[in-house]
Simulated assay, not measured.
Amino acid sequence: MTFNKLQYLQEEYDKLHIEGKTNFIENARFCLMADQYDYKNYHSNGKLTESEFYSVVDLLYELDNLNMLISFVVRNIKVLLQEVDGIESLKPFLEKAVIDEATFLTRINTFLQKQKNC
């Protein structure tokens, strides 16, 4: 008796509830399309280099695999934070705000008023 991979996948797919089918398909597509390098890096719990991180991100984006992309980015957020930390022009955006509550509320109110007028 030979093992029919397609039949096996179809049987496993049929066992799933509707919510799980999209995730199953996305995982299957990633397994088929990823080379050994990206597949290993996706499942790695170690610290990835920027090139390893972006290689997996690019593949997941290319496959339009947003569920796995979100999961991967969240697990490896330190890579992005280190990159952002190294960009001098972003430093002011990362600093803690030092305005008081009244000024903040005034600015929010001004913004909302402009939005209503648009």
Rank of each mutant, 00 (worst) to 15 (best):
N4H: 08
L6Q: 10
D14R: 10
K15W: 07
K15T: 04
L16M: 08
H17Q: 15
H17Y: 12
T22E: 14
N23S: 15
F24A: 04
F24M: 04
E26D: 14
N27Y: 03
A28T: 13
L32I: 07
A34S: 07
D35V: 01
D35L: 01
Y37L: 13
Y39V: 01
Y39L: 12
N41W: 00
N41K: 05
N41S: 12
G46D: 14
E50K: 14
S51F: 10
S51Q: 12
S51P: 02
E52I: 03
E52C: 10
E52F: 03
Y54N: 06
S55G: 15
V56K: 00
V56N: 00
V56L: 01
L59G: 01
L59Y: 00
L59D: 00
D64H: 10
N65H: 03
N67D: 14
I70N: 11
S71E: 13
V73N: 03
I77P: 04
L80T: 01
E83Q: 15
V84K: 13
D85F: 04
D85E: 11
D85I: 00
I87V: 15
E88S: 09
S89N: 04
L90F: 14
E95A: 13
K96Y: 01
V98N: 13
V98Q: 15
I99W: 01
A102Q: 14
A102T: 13
A102I: 09
T103C: 06
L105P: 03
T106I: 10
T106P: 05
T106K: 15
I108F: 14
T110I: 04
T110K: 11
F111D: 05
L112S: 09
Q113I: 13
Q113P: 02
Q115N: 14
K116F: 12
N117V: 11
C118S: 15
